[in-house]
Amino acid sequence: MKGIITACCAGILVAGCSSGNIIPPRAEQPPPRQTYSTAGLERVMGKDADQLERLFGRPIADVTEGYGRKLQFGSAICVLDAYLYPPDGGHGQPTVRYIDTRQRDGSPIDRASCVAALTHSKGRR
Results as ranks from 00 to 15, higher is better:
residue 11 G to R: 03
residue 24 P to E: 06
residue 124 R to D: 10
residue 56 F to S: 02
residue 68 G to L: 07
residue 89 G to D: 07
residue 48 D to K: 07
residue 57 G to N: 08
residue 64 T to L: 01
residue 97 R to W: 11
residue 60 I to H: 05
residue 27 A to Q: 13
residue 74 G to A: 15
residue 20 G to T: 12
residue 73 F to L: 01
residue 49 A to N: 05
residue 121 S to P: 04
residue 32 P to H: 02
residue 61 A to E: 14
residue 94 P to H: 08
residue 59 P to A: 00
residue 9 C to M: 15
residue 100 D to G: 14
residue 2 K to W: 10
residue 111 R to V: 06
residue 102 R to P: 06
residue 13 L to E: 08
residue 21 N to E: 11
residue 5 I to N: 10
residue 30 P to T: 12
residue 20 G to E: 12
residue 71 L to W: 01
residue 25 P to K: 08
residue 108 P to W: 06
residue 37 S to W: 00
residue 86 P to A: 02
residue 26 R to H: 10
residue 44 V to K: 03
residue 55 L to I: 04
residue 80 L to V: 09
residue 40 G to K: 02
residue 22 I to P: 01
residue 9 C to Y: 09
residue 122 K to Q: 13
residue 53 E to M: 10
residue 110 D to P: 05
residue 115 V to F: 08
residue 10 A to W: 04
residue 70 K to C: 09
residue 56 F to P: 06
residue 77 I to M: 07
residue 112 A to E: 04
residue 17 C to K: 05
residue 42 E to F: 06
residue 71 L to G: 00
residue 78 C to F: 08
residue 25 P to W: 06
residue 96 V to N: 05
residue 2 K to V: 11
residue 25 P to T: 09
residue 45 M to D: 02
residue 53 E to T: 07
residue 125 R to A: 12
residue 96 V to G: 02
residue 65 E to F: 08
residue 108 P to M: 00
residue 46 G to E: 01
residue 117 A to H: 11
residue 16 G to T: 01
residue 15 A to V: 08
residue 114 C to F: 08
residue 120 H to K: 15
residue 105 D to C: 07
residue 105 D to Y: 07
residue 31 P to D: 03
residue 78 C to D: 04
residue 17 C to F: 13
residue 55 L to D: 04
residue 100 D to L: 11
residue 87 P to E: 10
residue 35 T to D: 09
residue 57 G to H: 07
residue 86 P to V: 04
residue 114 C to T: 10
residue 101 T to W: 01
residue 26 R to V: 13
residue 76 A to T: 14
residue 14 V to I: 15
residue 91 H to M: 13
residue 95 T to C: 06
residue 27 A to R: 13
residue 37 S to N: 03
residue 113 S to H: 10
residue 52 L to A: 00
residue 25 P to Q: 07
residue 67 Y to T: 13
residue 76 A to E: 15
residue 87 P to Y: 09
residue 118 L to F: 09
residue 31 P to V: 01
residue 12 I to K: 00
residue 55 L to H: 02
residue 68 G to K: 06
residue 63 V to A: 04
residue 106 G to F: 00
residue 96 V to K: 03
residue 19 S to L: 15
residue 68 G to H: 07
residue 94 P to S: 05
residue 63 V to W: 04
residue 56 F to L: 02
residue 20 G to Q: 13
residue 61 A to T: 08
residue 24 P to G: 01
residue 54 R to M: 12
residue 100 D to K: 14
residue 6 T to V: 15
residue 92 G to V: 05
residue 22 I to C: 05
residue 100 D to Q: 13
residue 64 T to Q: 09
residue 86 P to F: 04
residue 87 P to R: 08
residue 4 I to E: 11
residue 56 F to W: 02
residue 73 F to W: 02
residue 18 S to A: 13
residue 5 I to V: 15
residue 92 G to L: 03
residue 75 S to F: 05
residue 75 S to I: 03
residue 32 P to N: 02
residue 7 A to S: 10
residue 11 G to M: 10
residue 4 I to T: 11
residue 90 G to A: 03
residue 100 D to S: 14
residue 88 D to L: 12
residue 26 R to G: 06
residue 94 P to W: 07
residue 48 D to S: 09
residue 61 A to P: 05
residue 66 G to L: 01
